[in-house]
Design a protein around this nucleic acid. Structure first.
Lengths: 143, 143
DNA sequence: CTACATGCAAACCGTTTGCACCCTA
DNA sequence: TAGGGTGCAAACGGTTTGCATGTAG
């Protein structure tokens, strides 16, 4: 489905800003923050307010067009196009970029923990930390 | 080692407040937030300021007596006695309490992802979500 | 024309910091 | 008594909100 239809069919009004943000997320290979989106749009001479960025991210998440992810290292949220797949994240401790990983080794483990703890387990989050291929050689010099 | 010695031997001055907070964490079966610590101390008629709680949590973490954990669901940090073991967390979506889990199934997976992505992986965080044994029956009624 | 989108400024909430005073070692 | 610990109030940073105006359908 085309970008515009995706937005419309989720019941949201089609706005210049919504299109730009949704496109940006759809084309980005990595989850990004509200600030990053804001900065990118302004570089492209698209005038927008930060709170509008947040509101748009909210409405797109509400319609499940994108997902909000909470890595928790810094306090900033990240957002990515919602491909409807279960994902894990790879966080670079040097450049702070986040990469998505598709496969998941955990279904057996969930069952095992459920048994041990008497929890009903409904999901999980797994983040891996390290140094990406760009940063691995300068690991010592990072923040 | 006794509580007081643990604090002293890490180079920190021994204070009423530090003792109380460290003891509270050591005795708690669950990771807790700064606010929870603050509230508990005041219930016990120990007068303290929230910023002091944060400062003590900072210094205890700095000395590795406790660890700071960043679950990321709410934006609050949690703290727990540092048992020096690698841990994962079980978060109850109803009462928001956090439980620690000891065992970890991920070392093979780390190697596999490292190969696929050309990352140097240094660690990971795994959180499981669900309903604890107290809450599992009222899952529908939670926030 | 109406309901939702937006800009702006102010509020929010968890956490941190500056400064004056206090107390442990 | 010196240097770290503490209370208080104010700052901080990411995010949210109230209100007046703008715009898509």
């Amino acid at each position: 489905m085309k970008l515009k239809e995706e937005i419309k069919s989720s019941g949201l009004k089609l706005t210049r800003h919504r299109q730009e943000i949704f496109r940006l997320l759809k084309e980005s290979r990595q989850p990004v923050t509200a600030e990053q989106i804001y900065a990118t749009l302004r570089e492209r001479n698209i005038s927008i307010n930060l709170s509008t960025v947040y509101r748009i991210l909210d409405s797109l998440s509400g319609s499940e067009l994108i997902s909000k992810i909470n890595i928790g290292e810094d306090k900033k949220n990240h957002y990515e196009y919602n491909c409807m797949a279960h994902r894990h994240y790879l966080v670079c401790l040097c450049c702070n970029n986040i990469f998505s990983v598709g496969d998941c080794p955990l279904s057996d483990y969930e069952k095992q923990v459920a048994k041990q703890t008497d929890f009903v387990i409904t999901g999980h989050k797994l983040n891996l930390y390290g140094y990406c291929s760009n940063c691995k050689d300068k690991a010592g010099q990072c923040h």
